[in-house]
C-alpha cells in the first residue's frame, strides 16, 4: 500500500507536526528573542535584571533544594509502593486506583487541600490542640518558620507527585518476569541483593523516564508553593509569574522561562547519560 504512495505517512503526520510547530516552536523562538533582546536589539539587560533581583538567588536555591529533596523521596516511595503492591494478589487494582487518586487532582487544588490542613485554623493545629501538644494556634506557613514551610511544601509535593512516578515504576516492575527474581532467590540472593542487583537494573528504563519526568516537573513547581507559601517561598516559575503579572515585565519573565527550560534540558541530558539504557542488556 504505502510503497506505492510514500508520501502518505508524511501526510498523516503533518497535522501534528504543524500543530506543534505553530503552538510550540514559534512561541519558543519568540520567548527566547523576548528574553535576549531589548528594544529590538540583542541584549543581556533582561538577564542582568533577573539575576540582580533580590528574589533570584532565593528562588534558584529554593527550587533546587525542593527538587533535590522531593524527587529522591518520591522515587524511593514509589519503589516501595511498587514492591509492596507486587506482593498483593486480591485487591491490587483497588489499591493502585486509590494510590493514583492524587494524579486526578490539579496542583492548585492539592495546594489548597494542604493549606486547609496546615493553615493556622487548619486540621493539623486542631489535632495537635486536641492532643494537648500545643496550647494555641501555631503558625507553620509564615516567613518566620522557613523550615516548617519548606517541609510543608515538600510533603504536599510528595503527596501530589508521587503517583505518576509510582505508575511508571509499577509499569516497569510488571515488565520484569517473576522468574528473574525466583532464579536469584534460588541461587542465594537475599531480598536486598535481589532488589539492587536484579530488580533495579531491570527497571532502569522506567526509572529513567520517571526521573526525567519528575525532575522536569519539580523544576516547574508553582501552584502548590503559591497556595501554601505565597511569596514567602520564591521559586523560579513563581518569579516568572510575578514578573509577568505583577511587574508586567514580559522580558524578565521570558528569561526565567528560558532558564527553567535550560535547567530541565540539562537535567534530562544528565539522566540520559548517567542512566544510559543499553538495549542489549534489556530482557
Amino acid at each position: 500500500m504505502t510503497q506505492n504512495r510514500p508520501w502518505i505517512p508524511y501526510l498523516l503526520i503533518l497535522p501534528s507536526v504543524a500543530f506543534l510547530a505553530l503552538l510550540f516552536v514559534v512561541p519558543l523562538v519568540q520567548t527566547i528573542w523576548l528574553a535576549l533582546s531589548d528594544n529590538g536589539a540583542p541584549s543581556l539587560a533582561n538577564a542582568e535584571r533577573m539575576v540582580t533581583d533580590i528574589n533570584f538567588t532565593r528562588s534558584v536555591r529554593n527550587t533546587f533544594l525542593l527538587t533535590i529533596v522531593v524527587v529522591p523521596v518520591q522515587i524511593a516511595i514509589a519503589l516501595a509502593m511498587g514492591a509492596m503492591v507486587s506482593k498483593v494478589g486480591r485487591g491490587r487494582e483497588t489499591i493502585l486506583w486509590i494510590w493514583t487518586i492524587p494524579l486526578g487532582i490539579s496542583d492548585l487544588a492539592a495546594g489548597l487541600v494542604w493549606l486547609s490542613i496546615l493553615q493556622n485554623t487548619g486540621y493539623f493545629n486542631s489535632l495537635l490542640f486536641s492532643l494537648g501538644v500545643i496550647g494555641r494556634q501555631a503558625s507553620w506557613l509564615s516567613y518566620q518558620t522557613p523550615v516548617a514551610l519548606f517541609i510543608a511544601i515538600a510533603v504536599a509535593e510528595i503527596w501530589r507527585g508521587t503517583a505518576i512516578v509510582m505508575v511508571i515504576i509499577v509499569a516497569g516492575l510488571n515488565q520484569v518476569p517473576k522468574e528473574f527474581k525466583e532464579a536469584a532467590e534460588i541461587f542465594g540472593a537475599g531480598p536486598w541483593t535481589r532488589f539492587w542487583r536484579i530488580t533495579l537494573p531491570l527497571i532502569r528504563p522506567a526509572l529513567q523516564s520517571a526521573l526525567i519526568l519528575r525532575t522536569v516537573l519539580a523544576f516547574e513547581v508553582f501552584a502548590v508553593v503559591y497556595a501554601l507559601g505565597g511569596r514567602n517561598f520564591p521559586v523560579l516559575v513563581g518569579e516568572a509569574y510575578n514578573w509577568q503579572n505583577q511587574n508586567q515585565n514580559y522580558s524578565v519573565a521570558a528569561v526565567y522561562a528560558v532558564l527553567i527550560m535550560i535547567i530541565s534540558l540539562a537535567a534530562t541530558l544528565i539522566y540520559l547519560k548517567a542512566l544510559k539504557v543499553d538495549p542489549e542488556r534489556l530482557p
Partner: peptide, 29 residues
C-alpha cells in the same frame, strides 16, 4: 529458604539475567 536447600533450578523461560554477561550469569550462584 530456597537458597538454603542446596538446589539449583533451570526455568522454562531460562531466566538468564539480561543485564549481566554470560560469565556473570554462570557465576551468579
Amino acid at each position: 529458604a530456597p537458597k538454603d536447600r542446596g538446589l539449583a533450578m533451570v526455568f522454562q523461560n531460562y531466566a538468564v539475567f539480561p543485564h549481566m554477561t554470560v560469565y556473570e550469569n554462570v557465576a551468579f550462584g
